[in-house]
């Protein structure tokens, strides 16, 4: 705007003509863009107005701006959540499970992608990849059913085998019924389901690494591991950083179907996460203001992590995502 203000009238006319021909050329593309933009406005931006509901009295039949403010300057429901032990537990469990997922689940697809990349037999690689992608398309409900048949403490297949092999009919591993075992089961099943799918983006990044680099390294006498360490991994670095930043932004977010389907009444101390808290209090008990407050808290922490991680990455000389 400010630049066009300094233009002479004839220059401005030129600009206008340019704009017109530009629009004639690319207008249809902009027309195509209307639909996705409308989607984001209607389903992402307009609903943000309802964030206000976190600070207003609980009533789903009125829009938040029509409602009176909640007590304590509108912060009633935030105070309530943080005084609620169930919420604090859910917060703790969310962070624990997500950190474990990050520590174990984040490197898994990278390792897998490196291994796939080293396979020379093309057809075998293709088949392996397809098999690895498969679990991604199963819902957690199906996986939880499979898991129970395999891992149930007494009549799960693995425990039946374990009993036979150990010769002790009372021996069993409480995969689903003791807190620590359940957390391990949760994390491992997560890796099993998503690691294969996660390799796709790394494999795509790997195709971008120039073969000349490998040749040069080989000429210099680098073995397989040296080449992975000095060529492949640095090539993946921007992708890894980007995904890591995005993952950190979700540190307080929680999946819903995964803990819900895998949980049972014995492990609620470790399995109740924020999404389940929101489901139980919001949808089941109609406390929409409370759960909106919790959702807002989750988002704010998520944004802080995202921005913080991005800033750290930039300071370390990476490009970051913002």
């Amino acid at each position: 705007m400010s630049r066009s203000a300094n233009l002479t009238p004839s220059q401005a006319g030129m600009k206008q003509a340019n704009f017109r021909s530009y629009m004639r050329r690319y207008g249809t593309l902009y027309l195509l863009l209307i639909l996705p933009i409308a989607f984001f406005i209607i389903f992402r931006y307009i609903p943000m107005a309802w964030i206000l509901g976190a600070f207003k009295e609980n009533n789903i039949f009125k829009a938040p701006w029509e409602l009176p403010w909640a007590k304590n300057n509108g912060f009633e429901f935030f105070i309530k959540a943080f005084n609620d032990r169930t919420f604090i537990n859910a917060l703790r469990n969310t962070i624990t499970l997500n950190l474990l997922d990050l520590a174990c689940g984040f490197p898994a697809p990278i390792l897998l992608a490196l291994m796939l990349n080293e396979l020379t037999f093309k057809r075998f690689k293709k088949v392996t990849q397809t098999v690895l992608y498969m679990p991604h398309f199963l819902s957690w409900i199906i996986i939880s059913g499979l898991a129970l048949r395999l891992l149930a403490s007494n009549d799960g297949l693995i425990n039946i085998l374990y009993k036979r092999m150990s010769g002790n009919p009372d021996a069993s591993i409480p995969f689903m019924s003791s807190n620590n075992w359940w957390v391990a089961t949760y994390v491992v099943l997560g890796i099993w389901k998503e690691a294969g799918w996660g390799t796709i983006i790394y494999l795509a990044a790997l195709t971008g690494i120039s073969p000349e680099l490998y040749e040069a390294a080989a000429v210099d006498g680098a073995g397989r591991f040296k080449r992975i360490w000095h060529v492949t991994l640095p090539g993946l670095r921007p992708t890894i950083i980007t995904l890591l930043i995005m993952n950190l932004g979700r540190i307080l977010g929680s999946e819903f179907d995964r803990p819900l389907a895998l949980s049972n009444k014995l492990v609620t101390d470790v399995s109740q996460v924020i999404s389940i808290y929101v489901y139980q209090n919001g949808l089941k008990a109609n406390k929409f203001a409370l759960t909106t407050a919790v959702g807002l808290f989750q988002s704010v922490v998520g944004v802080i992590f995202l921005v913080g991680a991005n800033a750290l990455a930039k300071r370390a000389g990476e490009r970051g995502i913002m």
Binding site: S144, L148, D155, G156
Partner: peptide, 11 residues
């Protein structure tokens, strides 16, 4: 039944 607690309501 040892595993009763591990099966959900729709089992």
């Amino acid at each position: 039944w040892k595993d009763f607690a591990e099966y959900a309501s729709d089992s």
